[in-house]
């Protein structure tokens, strides 16, 4: 009995982890929009030479859900945001469309977010809620709620295919440093940092999940698990909670800084919003 057991273990060890690298597939959306899912890592990344979109780590079936805007389940929520864009809300009796002729005016915005505006690091959700308050007299949207994330996705689609390009110098530098420190800090009972999985072990399996580099170029992302659009901060919370730590809150300064840093790790990848992931 013992001999057989040892032999079996040896076989398992030989076969090792399933597939290490991201796959070789190319992402072309709607048969025309070619996306960059692999490129040289930005200069500030010391330990990584090539960056990959999370798309490259998913199974063929999951990948195929993003190939066409009628296969992509996230697009129903983008459609809902178009309705929201045209809906009057707030004390001023305005809709977004009252001032913004077309949502296409926002081309390029997502690719450069988050960024420092009036001395404060601002993420897309901040921009939307601040604007709703001042220009529309409208109630803030819940950070990870359907209205907010569908609108963040609609604006993101306007940058789809453009390279992520967030600034990390000048006014952004102190926030970027803060975000970088969080990225490399071990949290929780499991004492895991973002880097432990997403830098040191991308391509490996964590239980049955194929670990990606943890890029956020596709957020808000339609996660098959929740069957809805998931925000970046929601995902950060989930990850840190899974290290069995008391996590930062959505909309916290820590997560804003982390968002800037993580976004900058993807500088050069195409904005893929709205991506489909597991």
């Amino acid at each position: 009995m013992k001999k057989v057991a040892i032999a079996a273990t040896a076989v398992c060890l030989v076969f090792g982890p399933v597939s290490a690298e991201p796959d070789d597939d190319t992402l072309i959306i709607n048969e025309e929009l070619e996306m960059v899912t692999e490129t040289a890592a930005p200069a500030h990344l010391e330990n990584v030479s090539t960056i990959y979109s999370g798309w490259r780590f998913r199974t063929d079936e999951t990948q195929s859900l993003q190939l066409d805007d009628f296969d992509n389940p996230a697009m129903i929520f983008v459609d809902q945001a178009i309705d929201l864009f045209n809906t009057v809300d707030g004390s001023e009796g305005k809709s977004c469309a009252s001032c913004h002729e077309s949502v296409e005016d926002f081309k390029g915005l997502t690719a450069s977010m988050p960024k420092v505006i009036d001395g404060k690091l601002t993420v897309m959700e901040d921009l939307l809620n601040n604007h709703r308050a001042t220009a529309m007299g409208a109630e803030p949207w819940k950070w990870s709620g359907p209205e907010m994330q569908s609108m963040v996705a609609l604006i993101g689609v306007q940058s789809r295919g453009m390279p992520v390009n967030v600034a990390i110098d000048g006014e952004a530098a102190p926030y970027w440093e803060q975000g970088k420190e969080i990225y490399y800090t071990r949290y929780g009972q499991l004492e895991l940092s973002c880097a432990n999985c997403h830098e040191e072990n991308y391509g490996n399996m964590i239980r049955a999940d194929h670990l990606s580099q943890g890029q956020i170029n596709g957020f808000p992302t339609y996660r098959l698990k929740q069957a809805r659009l998931i925000s970046k901060h929601n995902r950060f919370r989930g990850c840190i909670r899974d290290t069995r730590a008391e996590t930062f809150a959505e909309g916290s300064d820590e997560f804003r800084a982390l968002e800037l840093y993580v976004a900058s790790r993807g500088n050069g990848l195409s904005v893929e919003t709205p991506a489909v992931r597991q």
Partner: peptide, 26 residues
């Protein structure tokens, strides 16, 4: 709440042609 359909049908086809239709609804 918030139920919205999204349907893809080509704008035109030849008579007797077979088309593929994709439908989603939230």
């Amino acid at each position: 709440k918030g139920v919205k359909p999204r349907v893809k049908v080509p704008k035109s086809a030849s008579a007797g042609e077979t088309i593929t239709i994709k439908t989603l609804i939230s």
